[in-house]
Design a protein around this nucleic acid. Structure first.
Lengths: 207, 207
DNA sequence: AAGTTTACCATACAAATGTATGGTATTTTA
DNA sequence: TAAAATACCATACATTTGTATGGTAAACTT
């Protein structure tokens, strides 16, 4: 049996994954048809049948929205990590995803938050370590003492944020690193978002 | 308007959250009715109407499974923390939930897993700290080097697991703590589960 | 050249689904 | 004590949904 997907089948699978990740629920046939402009559900039906035949999804017959995505591990869907962010010295942030993190299929990432993998050890006294995944919300105003992700000359850092009179100070918790002081008018400085959580999977830690 | 939930309404909300987290999709009215033993969907219908009236969910009319949970931030779902577990000296584990944690939906949380809050600093070299939430999966076999939760005489510890010839060694990463050595026939020793993830919220860290 | 796969369409239908309406009994609130 | 909310039940109905069947046209195997 041929296992490769056609262009359209791949687009539909992408849509299924995207819906499941962003909306939390798989779409109905009608919703898929609407999205792709099909005039009836039978067309979608055949694409799904092809996807199931090739082993990418499993359908629970008769139940609505019961499309299981069986690529890889059933539990996890790779999510892009948008870049690496330095806790010590700045690292470049990549325009495209540089890596993927295994997130559960059940996971629902809000559209406005994203993930970054931390490199470096300057935040070790804030208990964030190299390899950890930080959850970044770009739609929050930073308050003093919060940990933020900031862009400095095309590089990104994750540090604790302090607003002074005419400058902003980004401090590491690790005394080995000096605080970064930014004048408010510094052109290429931008707060990317607030770190709202840290997540670390233990999978790879076994010896 | 009264905002408090009745016992049954709370149970139904819990079920909605649980289904969304574990299955990824909210249930249909029929599925809820089946779970609670109701003979028809109209009963569920009224409970959902009450939940919506009190502002805990939002329904997208006419669409199947279109139940949005609107409690607090949609990003975080409250999950019970079953007890506290010692990374240093053993602590008692509580039979009922002692607290709830707003766990991000991105965190891996299989249905059979549960949460424990860590106290103590014996695992600080494994980057787990007092106050962190560990996600524990009780249905995995421990491998050498993995971090496990174990029960010793009605108290629980979280330590790194090493299986030797005739004994099991539970070691701290912190050199201040001596390893615990357990004979395989020790009666009240039991592995509770494997730590599959660590989560820490940043909310409270702002100064 | 013939067969298969792909990519759409249309129509039809049973089951699932959400919803409306009305009923009964108990508990809570005013 | 009366009114309102709660917690179930039953029946009914229009849509939604998944699915089956059959058709057309193009692209790609063999």
């Amino acid at each position: 049996m041929k296992k490769e997907l056609t262009q359209i089948q791949k687009k539909i699978l992408d849509f299924l994954i995207d819906q499941k990740v962003s909306k939390g629920i798989p779409p109905t046939l009608a919703e898929i048809a609407l999205h792709f402009g099909y005039k009836n559900r039978a067309t979608v039906q055949q694409h799904l049948r092809a996807l199931e035949k090739k082993g990418f999804i499993r359908k629970n017959p008769k139940l609505s929205r019961a499309i299981e995505i069986t690529v890889e591990d059933k539990f996890f869907i790779p999510r892009p990590v948008l870049g690496e962010v330095a806790a010590g010295n700045p690292l470049t942030i990549y325009p495209d995803a540089i890596d993927t993190v295994e997130l559960p299929t059940i996971a629902r990432m809000p559209k406005d938050s994203f993930l970054l993998r931390v490199k470096g050890d300057s935040l070790k006294d804030a208990y964030i370590f190299s390899g950890d995944i930080v959850i970044v919300n770009p739609n929050l105003e930073p308050k003093n003492g919060q940990i933020v992700v900031a862009i400095l000359d095309d590089a990104a850092v994750v540090k604790r944020f302090y607003k002074k009179k005419n400058e902003i100070e980004l401090v590491s918790e690790n005394p080995d690193y000096k605080p970064i002081v930014i004048d408010k008018k510094y052109p290429s400085f931008k707060i990317v978002g607030i770190v709202v959580g840290v997540y670390r999977s233990m999978d790879k830690k076994a010896v």
